[in-house]
Amino acid sequence: MSRLAATFAELAQNGRKALIPFVTAGDPNPHFTVPLMHAMVAAGVDVIELGVPFSDPMADGPVIQRASERALAHKMSLRRTLEVAAEFRKTNQTTPLVLMGYLNPIEAMTYEGFANAAQRADIDGVLTVDLPPEEGAECTALLKARGIDPIFLLAPNSSSERVQKMDAAGSGYIYYVSLKGVTGAGHLNIADVEHKLQQIRANTQLPIAIGFGVKDADTANAIAHLGDGVVIGSALISKIEAHLDDPELAQNEIIALLTSIRQTLDSTQQTVGEL
């Protein structure tokens, strides 16, 4: 069983929800990321999504765009993101690690070159925003052959047919984009998500992580309980941006936010778990 499958299975068994932070590798500098990842694990996160900086992040809002720009200014790249992952793995062999980014850096490495490098870095999942399953067969097969889960997105306007397609093509988990918009947008509607999750659940057994627009512990909590986990990105990266001159303070604030989300998630696990 893959690390991701095992993690979600264990969470489900214990009636817990996955807490999944997203941070951009190398933001605000290349030395910041690995210690932050370890600290996030200590704060109780279950999976880490590591953003690969890209020059043209078309699906991202301004916060993650600027994170990419800061990382690129330090010559961060897909190759160096894989180095960050490998460095993290030296002292953590248990927390699943998912790369999230855009296709062109992968194309530049060639699919096979990338799949091999991701396997060497012991990556667990790859989510490529602009690679739908129709175009992704070759890349997906190479990843799966190496035990890496290809993770696909679903959106509020995805049909049941699309859900089935992702179910067939993907593994590990499905990432449900909770709103029509870019990352960090401000119009998340919980009732809409709840309604959509019924349609998705009817068409896949894969765990569902929900993200986009989750800003605080209460929203994270509400969202997480509609699926199997919650992804929180822009709200964390905002802390980095607010303290560019003091990365230690940024890390402390990120950890404080994740800790409060973890506590809220776990304290409501029982009641909701029984529903």
């Binding site: 078309m58 699906a59 925003v129 602009d130 175009e135 997105l153 995805s158």
Partner: peptide, 12 residues
């Protein structure tokens, strides 16, 4: 060519 977009753009 092809269609390389985020999922939200597939339906439109």
């Amino acid at each position: 060519g092809g269609i390389f977009v985020a999922e939200t753009l597939i339906p439109p």
